[in-house]
């Protein structure tokens, strides 16, 4: 049997299962309308077909996967375009641009003197679309400059405040928490998760860990001697960080798989 014949047989089997599932799901619909039940039956079956088509890539690349992938690209692009149009063009531009258009789209018109300025982003937006026309494509750099300028202007102050100044400031923490003297500390020393020793240890790890981590990223000086030791501690701290990130990544990916299998068993097969 050639691979083409095998593929045809496989497609016929998939089509039969699809049809069977559609009929069963349509029959088990809860709506009073037959049309709604048949439509929902089709949609659930189609969702299952797409789910399994994507999963089929685990075996190897195949036409079902390619179909699902291509559909995803098209549907997503259409989805974001529609949202862009309704949320921002209709939501933000139309209420400032025209009373009649506002009435047509059922959005509240905003009476303001500086309405003319709202055409600035529209002009820049249209200029951005020149990217599609090779001859005048260079014009799109103007819009790109607006986008990059805004991002740079916004990020400069926000990152400086929240990710630099605040982080440095948050790292200066008491290294002796609830300190009542060495005697008291030794008398009460324990490895209790909420105890004083662990609180002190945590703060030391945070303070020293941040410093050593930064030392590791400092490449203008050779990592030797004391600097080398600090850099080495920095690597260890970063390795723990990456280990934690790996653990969380596994957690996240498994959750997605659980979500899909729950859909197949619950919404489609009704066995949950």
């Amino acid at each position: 049997m050639t691979s083409k014949t095998a593929m045809r047989i496989l497609m016929a089997i998939v089509a039969l299962i699809f049809l069977f599932s559609w009929i069963i799901k349509s029959g088990s619909g809860v709506s009073d309308s037959t049309f709604t039940n048949v439509r929902d039956g089709f949609l659930i079956t189609f969702a299952v077909f797409l789910t399994l088509s994507i999963f089929s890539f685990l075996y190897h690349d195949n036409p079902f996967y390619k179909f699902a992938e291509s559909l995803y690209v098209g549907i997503s692009a259409g989805y974001w375009m529609c949202y862009g149009f309704w949320s921002t063009v209709v939501g933000n531009f139309v209420p400032r641009a025209s009373r009649s258009l506002s009435e047509f789209f059922h959005v509240p018109y905003q009476e303001r003197a500086d309405h003319i300025l709202i055409y600035i982003p529209i002009i820049f937006g249209l200029i951005l679309l020149t990217r599609l026309l090779p001859r005048i494509g260079w014009l799109s750099r103007w819009s790109l400059a607006f986008i990059i300028g805004t991002t740079a202007g916004l990020n400069l102050t926000r990152y400086l405040r929240s990710d630099f100044i605040s982080q440095v400031s948050n790292s200066f923490i008491p290294l002796f928490v609830d300190w009542k003297g060495a005697g008291d500390f030794i008398n009460h020393i324990s490895l209790a998760a909420d105890g004083q020793f662990i609180a002190i240890l945590s703060n030391w790890v945070i303070f020293v860990g941040v410093m050593c981590g930064l030392v590791y990223f400092f490449f203008s000086k050779e990592h030797k001697g004391t600097f080398g030791v600090a850099s080495r501690i920095g690597i260890w701290i970063l390795m723990i960080t990456f280990g934690a990130s790996f653990g969380y990544t596994v957690m996240g990916r498994i959750s997605l798989l659980v979500g899909r299998i729950t859909f197949l068993f619950g919404d489609w097969l009704n066995i949950l």
């Binding site: 982080q167 945590s202 303070f207 020293v208 981590g213 723990i240 960080t241 990130s245």
Partner: peptide, 19 residues
């Protein structure tokens, strides 16, 4: 503790890059 320290070191590094 260690994850927070590592992430903070990375965050400070990235913020300097962004700035």
């Amino acid at each position: 503790a260690p994850n927070l320290a590592g992430q903070r070191a990375i965050m400070i590094g990235i913020s300097l890059g962004v700035i």
